[in-house]
Design a protein around this nucleic acid. Structure first.
Length: 491
RNA sequence: CGGGGUGUGGCUCAGUCCGGUUAGAGUACCUGGUUUGGGACCAGGGGGUCGCAGGUUCGAAUCCUGCCACCCCGACCA
């Protein structure tokens, strides 16, 4: 592994790409637009999955699995849904290869053409609602609260590790309800789950809001989202929750018998977060030394590095290190004791910093003499010499403190880089000179939204929830507006 | 699909304009020794059909033609 990262402030994209590779998270795959997630990166994703899955279960959801392939005809059933995804679908047209007699190698067997093409799922609403049709007959079958962990494929023209890849991993929840109100409650509940996960686990502050019509999910009545700010000031959509109304129920003819004996279409929701969250995690906290992971999602929370010259030294240090390793593990802290003699301590320090391990404990001969250990925290780089009798409590407390500190830091950054403007001139001035979010009045029309996007590249990330209504006039058209919306350049 | 760029040991690249020893460097890897509290040092070593195919030439990484791949910018992006 080579040394060092490019500076974050000089070239953010380069820094990001190098970090993803050097921290051992992922790399570009030989397959166009796809990525290989390496073990360390996958370990972080698994931590995310575990936390989210638990939250889904606690809110009454169950996991299931639906097919990767979707018959083309399913797609055409919901008009706006097709339109939204048509341009980025991978399509299976044949089911067999054969030897190429003329040129060698293999070719697609032209005789093995599928009667109906299969779409590699870009999202699963259609296959899932096709099943729901058979699963739902009565109000007694509702609500149906299902989640699936899966991969999906969207043939993006340009890709970026974690942020936009042709294939990505995600979870997609698909629920069906007897009433509109219940479905709306579900939609908002899942948005809250995502926001809580982002803030409490990822330590990434987010703005909750509703998408404008332009940015709404294809097939939804309303799309809710959480938007996070990256360290270059750009916005990243970190999760979405859609109120589908009766759109898919009507498209797939999913009706149920009510208590009163009438027949009605069910109300739906869908919601998802993806490996894109990995990108958010990386870009929200990391620095020029590498990744900075919040303790709650760090695969290794504490690393112990022995400093030794001889086998005898190591043996003595290991005795102490094994002791605290066990004590920490008893307190559910994940510890790695790295006593490899193939790398020097300095090399290990740099390596674990690159990997974002929150706490490092170094034990050397000097510490053995004094009954101490050196504890270094990744977020602030501070080192403290701690008496070994207090080390376990100190470390456990430190992990909490780091989790809190990382969040506070990201939160302060987000606030410092958020602006409120009243005129289009101010708006453009800030976009040109400063990164960040901008709150401004908007007249509510797609036309204005598109013009602002074309002129400045800034888009409306969301119409924030919980923000005070405040009368004003649109920065672009001057027409009346009853609330400020969140503008930013986005990933 | 438009515009720009790059293909040379695992990785990052020099060499190409102006053809000419055995194709180089850094890093990584292997061996030995000295080291080990912030990415060690010295010595030795292995590893390359110079993207692919054709052509020009006594001679091609270098010039010509064709093809392929990848990257960046734009268009696209629940």
């Amino acid at each position: 592994m080579s040394k060092g990262l490019p500076s974050r402030s000089e070239d953010y994209s380069l820094w990001y790409n190098e970090l993803v590779k050097k921290a051992g998270l992922a790399e570009n795959s030989p397959v166009r637009g796809c990525m290989v997630i390496k073990p360390y990166g996958f370990a972080i994703w698994e931590k995310m999955q575990a936390s989210l899955d638990k939250m889904f279960k606690e809110t009454g959801h169950s996991n299931a699995y639906f097919p990767l392939f979707i018959p083309k005809s399913f797609f055409s059933k919901e008009a706006s849904h097709v339109e939204g995804f048509a341009k980025e679908c991978a399509v299976v047209t044949h089911y067999r290869l054969k030897n190429d007699e003329e040129n060698g190698g293999v070719i697609v067997d032209p005789d093995a053409k599928l009667e109906e093409e299969l779409i590699v799922r870009p999202t699963s609403e259609t296959v899932i609602w096709d099943s729901y049709k058979n699963w739902i007959q009565s109000y007694r079958d509702l609500p149906l609260l299902i989640n699936q962990w899966a991969n999906v494929v969207r043939w993006e023209m340009r890709t970026r590790l974690f942020l936009r890849t042709a294939e990505f991993l995600w979870q997609e929840g698909h629920t069906a309800h007897a009433t509109k109100q219940e479905a709306e409650v579900e939609t908002k509940q899942m948005l809250e789950v995502y926001a809580e996960f982002a803030e409490k686990h990822m330590a990434v502050p987010v703005t909750k809001g509703v998408k404008t019509e332009n940015e709404r999910f294809a097939g939804a009545e309303e799309t809710y989202c959480i938007e996070a700010m990256m360290q270059d000031g750009r916005a990243l959509q970190a999760g979405t929750s859609h109120f589908l109304g009766q759109n898919f129920a009507k498209a797939f003819d999913v009706k149920f018998a009510t208590k009163e004996g009438t027949e009605e279409y069910v109300w739906g929701t869908s919601w998802g977060v993806s490996t894109r969250l990995m990108g958010a995690l990386i870009m929200a906290h990391s620095d020029d030394q590498g990744l900075v992971l919040p303790p709650k999602l760090a695969p290794i929370q504490v690393v112990i590095v022995p400093i030794f010259r001889s086998e005898e030294d190591l043996a003595k240090i290991s005795e102490v290190a094994d002791g605290i390793t066990k004590e920490l593990r008893d307190k559910n802290v994940s510890v790695q004791y790295d006593k490899r003699d193939t790398h020097k301590p300095g090399w290990k320090f740099a390596e674990y910093e690159m990997k974002g391990v929150p706490v490092r404990i170094a034990i050397g001969p000097r510490d053995l003499e004094n009954g101490t250990m050196e504890v270094a925290r990744r977020d602030t780089k501070e080192k403290q010499v701690i008496n070994k009798d207090n080390i376990v409590d100190y470390t456990v407390g430190l992990l909490d403190e780091i989790q809190t500190n990382i969040y506070s830091k990201a939160s302060a950054f987000k606030e410092e880089n958020t602006y409120t403007v009243d005129t289009y001139d101010e708006f453009k001035e800030i976009l040109d000179t400063k990164p960040g979010f901008i709150y401004a009045h908007w007249d509510g029309s797609s036309e204005t939204e598109e013009k602002i996007k074309a002129e400045t590249k800034a888009t409306i990330r969301c119409i924030p929830l919980n923000s005070n209504e405040e009368a004003g006039s649109c920065i672009y058209s001057g027409k009346p507006s009853k609330q400020r919306v969140l503008f930013a350049k986005a990933y």
